[in-house]
Each structure stands twice: as C-alpha cells, then as structure tokens.
Design a binder for these strands. Structure first.
Length: 546
DNA sequence: TCACCATGCGCC
DNA sequence: CGGCGCATGGTGA
C-alpha cells in the first residue's frame, strides 16, 4: 500500500493510493509536528512511503526517531526513467545543484526555486504507468525499489554516522607529521622533508607544492621527467626522490585528512558522510563533502567501534568480473569463479600464468585498456571467456556509434553530447581533414570505453544496492530500540559494507551479510551459475580488515 | 578578487 | 584504461 507524503502549504498530506497510484480516497492532513508520530504508527502496516525527494523528508524523521522500511523516491526514479526514455529529467525533480556564491543573496528560499510541479500523487501514478509500459517493467520496478531503499540507507548512515576516534586520528597524525602546528604553519615533519629535498636537489629552496616549480627544479637537477606525478617519480633513481615521495604522501594526508578535516567533519565521535545515491550516471553512489568515498587507508585506523561494539566489514570478492560473467552468461568464467577467488580460479584452469595477470587482463577488458600487460593477456581471456569478452566489446561498439547501453536491470547510459555527435557526422561526411577524422575516432573510442564500463559498473551498482537493501532489512528489528542502539549500516563503498554492532551480535550480522549477498545475485540475475562470495572481517578498527 | 581550469592523488 | 571528490596552484577576466 503506497502512501504519498505531500506538502500542502504549511501542512502535510498523507494520501493512500493503490499500487498503480490511482486515488483511493483516504487522505489525512497533518501539521509537520504531528507527522513523525502518525508515520510511526502507520509503519506497522508496512506501507511504501512515496517521497518527492527522500533527502527532504527522511533526515528530520530519523531525528524524531522514525525509521522507515520502504519508500519510492520520485526524484531518483525520474532519473532512471528519463535515462530510459532518452530525455532530460523534469526540472522540478532534478537534483538540486548547490547555489553559486552570491545566488543565495537574491534567492532567499532556494528550496522553492524550481517550479513546484504537479502533485506527488500524480507523479507517482505517471511513474508507475511509465514503468509498466516498458518491455522490461519487472526489472525496472525492481531497480526503482532498490534505488529507493538505497536512499533510505544513505540517510540512515548519515544519521548514525561512522564511529570515529578523534583521539586516535590525532595520534596517528602526530606520529606521521609531528604535533599539530599553529594555524598557517606547516607540520615539522613536512618542513624537514622539504629541506632535505631542496638539499639533495642542489641547495636552493624548492616550493614542493607547486608542480610547475617542482618540475623546473627536478629538470634543473638533471632529472628527466615530464611531470611530478608519483608514478613517474617512482621510476627515477636519485637521492631526492625518496624524501620527495614521502613529502607528497604526508602533505596529502595533512591537507586532505589532517587536523582541519577532523575539526570540520568529526563531531561527537562520528563522521557523518553525505552519500549521494546515483551520483554517477552508472548508478554508483557519490558523496558530498568530507571525501567519504576516498577515505585513505592511512586514516582508517581512526574508524573505531564503540566500547562493547564491533565493526563487521564485508567486501564483495572481485565483484565486477563476476558481474560480467553473469551479464554475459559466460559459463567458463562462472566456473573460474566457483571459489572465493575468481582470479585464482583463472590461474588454476590454466588461462593465465598468475593472479596478477588475471586481474590486469580483466580490468583492461572492462575499462578498455589497450596497452601494456593488460593488452597482452586479453587474447588469452578472449579464447577462454569468449562470451564475456564479446559482451564488453559489443557495449564498446554501441558507444562508439553514439548508441545507448543498459545495465541488467535497465538503467540506460546517457547520450554523448551534441559536440561529440557533430564531430562524428563532420568526420563521416567526406571532405573532413585527416586530423578531424582522427580526432573523431579518438572521441568515438573514448565514448566506447565509457559504455563498455557502464554496463559492468552499473550492474555491479545494482547488485550492491540489492545487497545493501537486504542487509538493511535483516539487521533492523523494531523491538530493539533506536537505530543507533542496534546493529546498523555505518558505511558503504561501492562493493564494501561496514556494520556497527554490539559484539554479541557479530555472528548474526555476518550471517545477514552473507545471506543478503546470495539473495542479491538472485534478485538481479534470477538463476545464474555465477556466485557472489563476500569476505567478512570482525574488527575493532576499519584498517584491521583486509 | 573571483570563477574556472589543470594537476595530482585518494577511493572503488 | 572506467567512475568519482577534493585540495592546491595558476590563469584570465
């Protein structure tokens, strides 16, 4: 039973509708203050709450102690449907972009800057009809549900936060950089390293934070490099390189996750990342602020379970190649993945010489790599796993022609922009210069790599959503008190989940993670020979996993 | 001075 | 070689 949550002036309407969105007549008008209590009571009937935008409603409800089981997020589903239908998303349902500086001065109420649009109940009915009209309606409706469950999980993870020890973080920074310097000053260790680098480059002070000046200094010291990139410096033999690389690593730690980051993002023992479901066109999540999806391993030691609690860290093993095996129905690849390590399985079946080769080759196949070791391994993979390789090749060809590809549940890739299409037609119209033809071909290949990767990355994101939703459902019990006082999701990173739970629940959480992973394979692919094993570690600190 | 771009690097 | 976010320095208006 869907219930639409809709703003009506200063009040909120709860509108019960049928599954297809048709009106049923049952409607309740409430004040904002009454909403949490009423929704909590109605939750006993397990409705599907329909929100124009979960991020606009759910945080306040969580704050008021209301945890919801299911929802339908009109904004996220509009994104999926617009992609499928090859049109822009309706303006009132587009993600709100952050107002530019100054804009807020003239636009006091930035939440209402988009046209209000039709009522949510109408939009819901239209979306249900649009889904039902598609050839793969069942998959799309599954995707809509999974995406919406993700929106709930994202808000909940922000609400409860990732347990973070500011004390441990400070200790870790102090050990690496020296004590916290006064504002505006550089940590002692960085100053030492900078002096050492300058000394070994000949004596003059070199501003290491300026790539331009650093490059000039390196070349002046006879070091033949074309950039100051870590990967290039690593290949150089020179006494200045070691302290320089250490400087770069520590300078990054300091600027990206140093004391300033700690002050800004960690409060009351929690880091509260803002997750952005479907922030990438493939459906992968992005994040907003704090660099939540890029937490360097260097600082993961500060992620520490509360006393008496534990972190259960789970990781889907070689998710993307397994996804490709399932997508393409490649029986040989499914067989190689029968164990916990798919790459090891490829070595055992004699396809490649080493695990490293297997990994490199598969990544190259999925990303469109054409150089180095990965390209050398590709022919072997193509012989042993013809269906898998043909699948990504077909996706690449479609993209090169400007076509759209879809994930297994039906998320559709965006069209290339107009400039791209214009360059392609120019190049094919005859009379184009050789340079224009070559540039167009490069463009085409670039878009082909995108669509090649889209099908795998996007379907992996669908598997991960199904997993996340399944874990979330299994962990929650309405009888165990508030979300933060019972086992709960604390972090999500594409193919990895962190659950924060009392010690005594660790085994139960591990079982939930494994059951949900198996279920996710069935939800996304139905029957498939491909397995989706996960690794699970029960730890006090995040860095102790893996 | 501000907006924007390029570089470089963190994560998957 | 696919997808992101963020800090920094440098540029041009």
């Amino acid at each position: 039973m869907p219930i639409i949550v809709e703003r009506r002036g200063a009040q909120v309407a709860l509108v019960e509708v049928r599954d297809d969105g048709a009106a049923q007549g049952n409607e309740t008008l409430l004040t904002e203050a009454e909403l949490p209590r009423v929704m909590r009571e109605l939750e006993a009937e397990h409705p599907r709450w329909v929100f124009s935008d979960t991020t606009q409603w759910y945080p306040a409800l969580l704050q008021a102690g209301v945890r919801l089981e299911r929802c339908h997020d009109l904004r996220l589903v509009e994104g999926i449907l617009a992609g499928v239908e090859g049109r822009p998303a309706r303006a009132e349902l587009r993600p709100r972009t952050r107002p530019a500086l100054g804009e807020t001065l003239f636009d006091v109420d930035s939440e209402t800057d988009a046209a209000p649009g039709p009522p949510a109940s109408l939009t819901y009915r239209e979306q249900q009809a649009a889904i039902a009209a598609r050839p793969r309606a069942r998959s799309l409706s599954l995707l809509a549900a999974a995406e919406s469950a993700g929106a709930l999980a994202a808000a909940e993870m922000t609400h409860v936060g990732l347990p973070w020890s500011a004390e441990d973080h400070d200790a870790l920074l102090t050990a690496a950089l020296g004590p916290r310097p006064p504002a505006g000053a550089r940590p002692a260790r960085l100053t030492e390293l900078a002096a050492e680098v300058s000394r070994r480059l000949g004596g003059a002070a070199v501003p290491l934070d300026s790539p331009t000046e650093l490059l000039r200094a390196l070349r002046g010291a006879g070091i033949d490099v074309s950039s100051t990139r870590q990967s290039e410096l690593q290949r150089v033999v020179h006494p200045a390189i070691a302290p320089l690389l250490e400087y770069k690593s520590l300078a990054r730690l300091w600027s990206a996750n140093g004391w300033n980051w700690l002050d800004e993002w960690v409060h009351d023992g929690r880091f509260r990342p803002v997750f952005v479901p479907a922030g990438a066109s493939s459906g992968r999540w992005a994040s907003d602020g704090g660099g939540a999806l890029q937490l360097p391993r260097q600082v993961r030691g500060a992620v520490r379970a509360d006393d008496g609690w534990t972190l259960v860290v789970a990781d889907a093993a070689q998710l993307e190649p397994r996804i490709l095996a399932a997508l393409s129905g490649d029986v040989a690849m499914a067989h190689a993945g029968a164990g916990v390590d798919l790459y090891a399985g490829m070595v055992e079946s004699g396809v490649v010489a080493s695990r490293e080769h297997a990994k490199l080759g598969m990544l190259g196949a999925m990303y469109g790599g054409t150089t180095g070791e990965s390209a050398r391994v590709l022919p072997k993979l193509a012989r042993s796993f013809p269906d898998a390789i043909a699948f990504v090749e077909a996706a690449a060809r479609t993209g090169e022609r400007g076509g759209a590809v879809t994930t297994h549940l039906g998320r559709t890739s965006p069209a290339p922009n107009e400039a791209w299409s214009e360059r392609q037609s120019q190049a094919h119209s005859g009379g184009a210069s050789g340079a224009a033809v070559a540039a167009a071909r490069t463009d085409a290949r670039t878009w082909g790599r995108f669509t090649r990767n889209f099908v795998v990355q996007g379907t992996a994101a669908e598997w991960a959503l199904a997993w996340l939703a399944g874990v979330r459902r299994r962990l929650w019990s309405s009888e165990r008190g508030p979300l933060s006082r019972q086992p709960h999701l604390a972090f999500f990173l594409h193919d990895e989940l962190v659950v924060h739970a009392p010690h005594s629940h660790a085994a139960e959480v591990e079982a939930a993670l494994r059951e949900a992973a198996a279920e996710a394979g069935r939800i996304v692919f139905g029957h498939t020979a491909v397995t989706f094993p996960i690794t699970v570690a029960v730890v006090q600190r995040y860095n102790e996993a893996k």
